[in-house]
């Protein structure tokens, strides 16, 4: 059983209701979840290195998920970044983008294919 106590999760999700459902399910499991909609603000938050796991949507206002991921994984732009990043999206991405994401992310999931509790299991497995 993964230890979820005091683990902080940042949910970057532009569909507020989806983010709300995910936060609810994760909090039930004992995680501390924080929800943010705007891409540019989300990047600033993620760069504080206060989070253990980041759920990252790709289609986001002001700054898209692929850009956020690149910035977080660049040690010059985000020094000391250690959080696990799981991509949560409903976009059918092109092959090239999928490949790029594969290199940088710790997980990739289509939101419509999973329920919130299945997302929690996924987060648990990443948090081991």
């Amino acid at each position: 059983m993964a230890d979820s106590k005091n683990k902080r999760i940042l949910i970057i999700e532009d569909e507020f209701l989806i983010g709300e459902l995910y936060a609810r399910a994760l909090e039930k499991e004992g995680y501390q979840a924080e929800l943010i909609i705007d891409g540019a603000e989300a990047l600033k938050k993620a760069q504080t290195n206060e989070y253990d796991i980041i759920l990252l949507d790709l289609m986001l206002p002001n700054l898209d998920g692929v850009e956020i991921l690149k910035t977080l994984r660049n040690p010059e732009l985000t020094p000391g970044f250690k959080a696990k990043v799981i991509i949560t999206t409903n976009i059918e991405e092109r092959k090239e983008i999928k490949k790029a994401i594969e290199k940088e992310a710790d997980g990739y999931v289509i939101k419509a294919d999973i329920t919130p509790s299945e997302l929690v299991s996924l987060v648990n497995s990443v948090n081991q």
């Binding site: 569909e15 209701l17 989806i18 459902l21 995910y22 609810r24 399910a25 289609m59 409903n90 976009i91 059918e92 289509i110 939101k111 419509a112 999973i114 329920t115 919130p116 509790s117």
Partner: peptide, 18 residues
């Protein structure tokens, strides 16, 4: 189009489970 359909679908599945 897939994205437009998946978004409400995600919500429906989420609320049904909740």
């Amino acid at each position: 189009g897939v994205h437009e359909l998946r978004t409400p679908l995600t919500l429906l599945r989420g609320y049904v489970e909740a």
